[in-house]
C-alpha cells in the first residue's frame, strides 16, 4: 500500500513537471496569488472559509450553489427566494442581492467579472446578468433542470441538463446554444481540466463519469463508478479526476485515463469537491463538515465543521496582503 501511494505521488509529480497549467499555477503562486476555499451551507444559510479557516458568514436563506469571481467576490444562488447574492469574500460583507425571475441554481462568472450566468432550474434556461446592476443581459434555452455550469476561456458555457441527459454548450458572446452532448442519466456536476481540453460530467443516476473532448464536443471516455457521483474536480496538474460518491460516502480518485486509483472515505452524502494547491476539499452534506484531502498521499487529513447542509465549494484567488 505504501509502495503504491509512493508511486502515485511520483506519477503526480512527473505529470506536474510536464504539464503547462501546473507550471502556470505554480508561477501565479510565486507572484503572490493566495487562494481561499469557501463552503456554502444551504440549510445553515452560511458561507464558511475553510482554508484558511474562518468564521461562518451569514448570507441569507438557502444558498445552493456558488461561483467565485475574479475580484474577491462570491456569487450565490438562493434557489427558493429568487435571488442571487453577491458577497465580498475577504470581508464577508453581503454587497448586493440581485433579484432573479426564476429558480436560480448553477452559477458561473465571466473571467472579467462583468457578467454572471445563472441557471434557472425550473425555467430550463440560462440567464446572463450584469454583476454591476443585476440587469438581464440575455437568456438562452437549455435542457430541463440545468444543474452545474462551467465557463471556459473561449467563452463557451457548459450546462449539465439534469433531466435531459445532456450537456448544453452555449456561446456566451451571442447567448446561443451551439451544441448538445448526450451523456448518462442525471448529469449534475461539471469540471474542466486545467488545459480545458476535457470536460468531465458526473451523472448521478446512471452512476458514471463522462469525458467530453471540448474541441470536438464528443464523448471520448466513460467510467462506470456506481452509486451517485455528485461532484467532480480536477487536480492542478490535470492528472487526477476527483469524484464524490454521495451514496457511498467516498471520494473516488481516477487518473486521466479514467482508471480508478483510490477510494477515500469521507463524511456522509459528500457533494461538492474543489481543488486548491495539493489539497482537495469535499462538502459532506449530511455530516455538516468539509473533508480535507491531501492529494500527494490521497488521504483525508482533517474534517472541518461548517454550517448545516454544505453543498457547494468555491476557490477565490486574491492578491496576498503584504
Amino acid at each position: 500500500m505504501i509502495g503504491r501511494v509512493a508511486t502515485l505521488a511520483l506519477a503526480a509529480l512527473l505529470a506536474g513537471a510536464v504539464s503547462g497549467p501546473a507550471l502556470a499555477e505554480k508561477g501565479s503562486a510565486e507572484k503572490g496569488l493566495a487562494q481561499t476555499v469557501y463552503a456554502v451551507s444551504q440549510e445553515g444559510g452560511t458561507v464558511t472559509p475553510v482554508a484558511p479557516s474562518g468564521a461562518a458568514i451569514p448570507v441569507g436563506k438557502g444558498p445552493a450553489q456558488v461561483a467565485a469571481g475574479p475580484d474577491g467576490r462570491l456569487y450565490l444562488a438562493h434557489s427558493d427566494t429568487h435571488t442571487v447574492s453577491v458577497v465580498d469574500g475577504p470581508s464577508g460583507a453581503v454587497l448586493a442581492r440581485l433579484p432573479f425571475a426564476g429558480q436560480p441554481f448553477g452559477v458561473a462568472v465571466a473571467p472579467d467579472g462583468r457578467s454572471l450566468f445563472v441557471g434557472d432550474w425550473s425555467g430550463a434556461r440560462v440567464v446572463r446578468l450584469s454583476t454591476a446592476t443585476g440587469a438581464v443581459e440575455g437568456s438562452v434555452g437549455v435542457g430541463r433542470d440545468p444543474a452545474g455550469l462551467v465557463l471556459d476561456t473561449r467563452g463557451l458555457l457548459y450546462v449539465a441538463d439534469r433531466e435531459s441527459r445532456q450537456v448544453s454548450v452555449v456561446d456566451t458572446a451571442t447567448m446561443t446554444r451551439i451544441a448538445t452532448v448526450p451523456v448518462g442519466e442525471g448529469p449534475f456536476a461539471l469540471a474542466l481540466n486545467p488545459a480545458q481540453d476535457r470536460l468531465y460530467v458526473a451523472c448521478v443516476r446512471s452512476g458514471d463519469l463522462h469525458a467530453i473532448d471540448t474541441a470536438t464536443l464528443t464523448i471520448v471516455g466513460r467510467a462506470a463508478l456506481g452509486g451517485m457521483p455528485y461532484g467532480v474536480a480536477v487536480s492542478g496538474d490535470g492528472a487526477r479526476i476527483l469524484v464524490t460518491n454521495q451514496q457511498a460516502g467516498t471520494l473516488v480518485v481516477l487518473d486521466a485515463a479514467l482508471t480508478p486509483v483510490a477510494t477515500i472515505p469521507v463524511g456522509r452524502y459528500p457533494e461538492g469537491v474543489a481543488v486548491s494547491g495539493d489539497r482537495a476539499y469535499v462538502a459532506n452534506w449530511f455530516s455538516d463538515s468539509v473533508s480535507v484531502i491531501d492529494l500527494p498521499t490521497l488521504t483525508e487529513t482533517a474534517r472541518l465543521p461548517v454550517g448545516e447542509g454544505p453543498r457547494g465549494l468555491a476557490v477565490l484567488m486574491s492578491k496576498e496582503i503584504p
Binding site: Q42, G62, D145, R162, E163, W285, F286, G309
Partner: peptide, 13 residues
C-alpha cells in the same frame, strides 16, 4: 416518468 430532483435536499435521520 422522470424523478424531479429539486434544488433543496432535506435530511431524514
Amino acid at each position: 416518468p422522470v424523478l424531479a430532483h429539486g434544488p433543496t435536499p432535506q435530511k431524514v435521520d
